[in-house]
Design a binder for these strands. Structure first.
Length: 461
DNA sequence: TCTGGGGTCCTAGGACCC
DNA sequence: TCTGGGGTCCTAGGACCC
């Protein structure tokens, strides 16, 4: 596909200079540097890996190259498409589409649940390339990052040349990326979407209004289905109209973000590239192919997810104080319950009984459960130090200090023994994989999940 | 043919304190 | 006996992103 673009330098609607630069020969277009108008002021890249998961699969399975590949969940288990190759997109398959629909559109596609450790590894290598260019890298997901390449920051080198070098270095790893270049993050983001795969789209300083003006508001990051509907109802359809809209009108749609969103629509939002990787929450969810109706099955699922969350907390060295569960009923309505803990913890053996208590607030016998989730939030740096969830006195107060009350407690309530057990099972799972150690409850719902894939922004760090 | 799983951020209301 | 307003914490829900 790059052949048709080879050598093309085209002008984008209204922008003084907006180039699509061909990627097939990007290692050196003779004289390109001389053709580029000088760049004044800030320059930000948005680097977006093309069909990332599917591209890695095609890299690792040579037989899959040139064929429709779909990474996602099972069609008969409520699964959806996570990522699909461009060959599959030709059939109309898209991300987030129900897997059953994708199967009808493209019956011969190659399906895989994905290999997330491999994606994380590839992503880390690519982010390393970006950080080798400049430390001013803001990773926004496993396959996207902003890079501040303002000439004052990168040896006065032209931003377009930096972008072309990044594309060349990424391709050496066997995958490709599209890059948008602009004076702000939102301009770079929109530019990166205009030409995929292997595209390089540049909006020069001063061209923002002409570049963004005709685009639909939905193209702007931060405008979803609800905001789009609210804007349309008020006669605002394009980014140009949004940039000119009354702030009071926008406040009814965006609340306190109205001014910021209007600046974005005008390409004038100055939010900086931020190197910030602080994790705010850790959670795990499961959608079931068959709705759960038995309390024992629901508790087993909560215990399984609680254990996964605990293990990830320990791996990250985090302890949280806000425990939450999420539940979706068979009619797809969703409820959540959260509870503030007395002490931060990363120990599922301590908090799993609380999950069962919280369940009582949103579930009664007879209710069918389609999805369950367990999450932990409320981290503070000083909370990383481990503490027991409850003291014996608090447990006595909760459950009664008599023999019957004490007998209800987990057999391993002794903190040191608990931590020993957790450390041992973590070590086994590190060595032999997640399936190496299972408790009885973890087997109950086996083979009843969607097997879907994810792009978890916190998990590759 | 029917919608996943991982996150972040915002809003609104109630409890509580002064 | 009834009453205020502001600040903070907590909870639930929802919009949005990849």
């Amino acid at each position: 596909m790059s052949a048709s673009r080879k050598g093309r330098i085209s002008r984008l609607a209204g922008a003084p200079m907006a180039y699509h630069v061909p990627m097939s020969k990007h290692a050196g277009i003779p004289g390109l540097e001389a053709l580029l108008p000088p760049w004044e002021g800030p320059a930000i890249l948005l680097v977006d890996l093309d069909a990332f998961f599917a591209s890695v699969e095609q890299l690792d399975h040579p037989g899959w190259r040139g064929k429709p590949v779909i990474v996602g969940g099972d069609a008969d288990k409520h699964g959806v498409v996570s990522t699909c190759s461009y060959e599959a997109r030709a059939f109309g398959v898209r991300s987030a589409m129900p897997a059953s629909m994708a199967q009808r559109l493209c019956p011969d596609a190659i399906w895989t649940h994905g290999h997330h450790d491999r994606y994380r590894q590839m992503s880390s290598a690519i982010m390393g390339i970006l950080r080798d260019e400049t430390p001013h890298v803001q990773q926004v997901s496993i396959d996207e990052a902003f890079v501040d390449v303002s000439p004052t920051r990168v040896n006065a080198e032209h931003p377009v040349l930096v972008a072309r070098r990044i594309q060349a270095r990424v391709e050496e790893l066997g995958v490709t990326c599209s890059i948008g270049v602009g004076t702000t993050k939102s301009v770079a983001k929109i530019a990166s979407d205009m030409d995929k795969p292997r595209g390089l789209t540049v909006c020069y300083p001063g061209g923002e209004a002409a570049f963004l003006g005709p685009l639909p508001v939905r193209d702007l990051s931060g405008v979803g289905p609800a905001a789009e509907a609210a804007l349309t109802a008020r006669g605002v359809r394009t980014l140009g109209e949004m940039a000119a809209a009354d702030e009071a009108l926008l406040r009814r749609v965006f609340g306190k973000n109205a001014a910021m969103m209007r600046a974005r629509a005008a390409g004038a939002d100055e939010s900086p590239v931020e190197v910030d990787d602080e994790v705010k929450s850790v959670s795990n969810e499961m959608t079931f192919a068959r709705d759960l109706t038995e309390r024992a099955d629901i508790e087993a699922a909560l215990a399984t997810m609680g254990a996964k969350v605990g293990r990830r907390l320990r791996r990250k060295g985090l302890a949280g104080r806000t425990l939450s569960i999420r539940i979706r009923y068979d009619d797809r309505t969703t409820r959540s319950v959260q509870r503030r803990l007395a002490h931060p913890t990363d120990d599922e053996l301590a908090y799993t009984p609380l999950l069962y208590e919280m369940l009582d607030e949103v579930w009664r016998p007879g209710i069918k459960v389609r999805l369950l989730g367990v999450g932990m939030a409320g981290f503070k740096p000083e909370d990383v130090v481990q503490e027991a969830l409850f003291t014996d006195e608090e447990l006595d107060a909760r459950e009664g200090g008599d023999e019957a009350g004490r007998a209800k407690r987990p057999a391993l309530k002794d903190e040191a023994r608990r931590r020993g057990l957790l450390a041992a099972t973590d070590a086994l799972k590190d060595k032999f994989g997640e399936g190496a150690v299972r408790f009885g409850h973890e087997l109950r719902n086996e083979s009843n999940t969607t097997g879907s894939s994810t792009k978890n922004p916190a998990d590759y760090k």
